Simulated scan of single mutants.
Amino acid sequence: MTLFGQKKQEFAVLVVRDADEVAEAVDRALETAGPEERPGLERAAALLAAAQEATDGELRGSWARRQITEAGVEGPADSVRAVKALREAEPGLSLLQAVRLSKEAAALEDEEGRGRTA
Rank of each mutant, 00 (worst) to 15 (best):
S94P: 08
A51W: 08
V13H: 07
R65H: 11
D20P: 01
Q9A: 12
A23M: 14
A107L: 15
E90L: 12
K8P: 00
E31F: 05
G57R: 12
K84G: 03
E21A: 13
V22L: 15
A29S: 13
R60T: 05
L59S: 01
L48I: 05
A85S: 08
E90K: 14
E112D: 13
E112C: 02
R66E: 12
L30G: 02
V73F: 01
R87Q: 11
V73R: 01
G113M: 08
E37N: 06
R38T: 13
G92W: 12
A12H: 11
G57I: 06
A50V: 08
V99K: 12
A45V: 03
D18R: 12
E111I: 09
V13C: 05
R28E: 15
E111P: 00
K84Q: 14
D110F: 13
L86T: 02
E90Q: 15
E10R: 12
S62R: 12
L41I: 06
Q67T: 06
P39I: 05
Q9W: 01
L95A: 07
V99E: 10
E88K: 12
A77F: 04
E36R: 15
L30V: 06
A77Y: 04
A25W: 04
L86H: 05
V26Q: 01
V26T: 07
R43V: 07
T117M: 10
L108R: 07
